[in-house]
């Protein structure tokens, strides 16, 4: 089973990189973009075959290492 973890900055946390991307898009003529948030995607190959066990395990990994829950939120997708 594979898991895909989406990590984004929490709402309200300023994202300087996203802002820079928004500015760049604007200067290229894409002026319909009012906001950009940049995050990351991590894909995991898992030995676990049970969905709920896999999800619980990946959430534990997110809390322990993959996300900094002070500033980031995460979302686990099983694929």
């Amino acid at each position: 089973m594979k898991a895909r973890v989406h990590i984004m900055l929490k709402t309200g946390v300023l994202d300087p990189q996203g802002e820079a991307v928004r500015h760049a898009l604007g200067s290229m003529g894409f002026d319909g973009v009012s906001g950009v948030r940049q995050g990351k995607v991590i894909e995991l190959d898992l030995a676990e075959t049970d969905e709920s066990a896999a999800r619980a395990e990946v959430e534990k990994m997110c809390e322990a290492l993959l996300a900094n829950t002070v500033i980031e939120r995460y979302d686990v997708e099983l694929i």
Binding site: V13, L14, P16, Q17, A20, N68, V70, I71
Partner: peptide, 17 residues
């Protein structure tokens, strides 16, 4: 130290990048 939680808060990319 922030990542361990021994101090509070987080350090992000410099505002001016």
């Amino acid at each position: 130290l922030l990542e361990t939680g021994l101090l509070p808060g987080a350090l992000m990319r410099n505002a001016g990048l």
